[in-house]
Simulated assay, not measured.
Amino acid sequence: MTDDERWLVVNGRRWRRTDPCLPEDVAAALRSHLGRGRSAVGAGKRSGDDERVADARRRVGLAKHGLGERGPRWWEQPEPERIERARAALRELEALDATDGHDDRPAAS
């Protein structure tokens, strides 16, 4: 595997790519959680709600770990561990949605 397959460079800054071995349905669900979490960070900042920002950042972190963009380098782990890491992150995110009643999607205008 080459560095081009592991890293994305934007404006001179290197970002870890999403783990390519993840099943598409799992990766898509994690990307959805990531997008909603990022949106909630912005909404929390705009409203001055530090607790909402912290909760949303936790969700962003979980999604990024699941995608392999944070945490252990995915290319250094066996594929079954990588897939289980993603599925575990997704289960945790879905459990948070189910138990806290907190919807990170931005409110409709």
Rank of each mutant, 00 (worst) to 15 (best):
A95E: 15
R17D: 02
L62V: 15
G71Q: 06
G101Q: 00
P23G: 02
A98G: 01
P106S: 05
A56Y: 01
D100L: 15
R87G: 01
A27D: 04
E69I: 13
R82S: 14
A43H: 12
H33M: 07
V41M: 04
R17V: 12
E5Q: 14
A54T: 04
D50C: 05
L67Q: 00
A28S: 05
Q77V: 06
A63T: 12
G61E: 07
A88M: 06
R16P: 11
V41L: 05
R13D: 13
R6E: 02
E24M: 11
E94L: 00
R16T: 08
V26A: 00
T99Y: 09
G42I: 07
L22F: 14
L22D: 02
D49G: 05
P72S: 08
D55R: 11
E69R: 15
G12H: 00
L62R: 15
P80V: 01
A98Y: 05
D25G: 11
R13F: 09
H102V: 09
S109R: 10
E5F: 15
D19W: 03
E81G: 10
E94W: 03
D97I: 13
L22M: 02
I83Y: 03
W75K: 04
T2V: 10
G37R: 04
A28W: 09
G12Q: 01
Q77P: 07
R91Q: 01
C21M: 02
S32M: 04
G48L: 03
